[in-house]
């Protein structure tokens, strides 16, 4: 790693009460294998816990896995808390069982791409990389 270059740091979070962490763990391992530094929160996190961790760890990205159907509550709340904490530059993305209409609605509320079941992990990796490139590129230009 050359001087000043920054690893992409991602918080992989599992909000809510559902315990299905297979997806979260697979994506966390895949992100690691893609060279990201991944902070895994463990299960049963509240939005407040997730945002607190994201701030302390100074991550670039928060990736949440939601399979419980509570996505319309959880994603907007985490987005709002991040913004309020002065971390509006953190990308909030994720995956789970999320109907198309809801994906659109969440997108309008500042949530990034949401990946459905069966998405190859490579797609999520490429998305995060691309987003990071744009962000750091813009930062350097400005």
């Amino acid at each position: 790693m050359s001087e000043g270059e920054r690893k992409i740091r991602v918080l992989v979070a599992k909000p809510g009460l559902d315990g299905h962490d297979r997806g979260a763990k697979v994506i966390a391992s895949s992100f690691r294998d893609a060279g990201f530094e991944v902070i895994y929160t463990g299960l049963h996190q509240t939005p407040e816990m997730i945002v607190n961790a994201a701030i302390q760890e100074d991550v670039d990205v928060v990736a949440m896995s939601v399979l419980s159907g509570a996505h319309m509550t959880l994603f907007p709340r985490v987005r709002r808390l991040l913004d309020e904490a002065g971390a509006d530059d953190i990308l909030l993305t994720g995956g789970g069982i999320i109907p198309e209409d809801d994906v659109r609605a969440l997108g309008e509320q500042g949530v990034g791409r949401l990946f459905g079941p069966g998405t190859p992990t490579g797609e999520a990796i490429a998305y995060v990389r691309e987003w990071h490139r744009e962000k750091t590129g813009a930062a350097n230009a400005g």
Binding site: G16, L17, D18, T46, G69, T73, L74
Partner: peptide, 8 residues
């Protein structure tokens, strides 16, 4: 902690 998940 049940917020958003009741009856879902």
């Amino acid at each position: 902690r049940s917020l958003g998940e009741v009856g879902v």
